[in-house]
Amino acid sequence: MSGTILALALGFAQVALGLAGGLAVLTILRGPRAQDRVLGLDTFYVTGMLLFLVTGLRSGSLFFFEAACVIGVTGFVATVALAKFLLRGEVIE
């Protein structure tokens, strides 16, 4: 009973997060401007991190947590660097 409920919820979560990642990739590809693409990337890595957490729940292993941590940190640094580049790199200087 509870196994079925949890399996359903986990399945729903995985499909929803997968779709969300797809929509974020669509935003990265479509733009139209650079800041939209960076925002898409930001959404994409948060979604990927959540997907790792859900996958960890499904397999019952705590090791996915470490992977999610690494994705979170690298994604954050990447977005900040890209935003900083947009702020001073392109249009004026």
Binding site: A9, Q14, L17, L23, L50, V54
Partner: peptide
Amino acid sequence: LVLGSGLTLLGAFGLA
């Protein structure tokens, strides 16, 4: 789980 993933999906939908 359903609430969290549903909200994330809605956010990505709004983004697109």
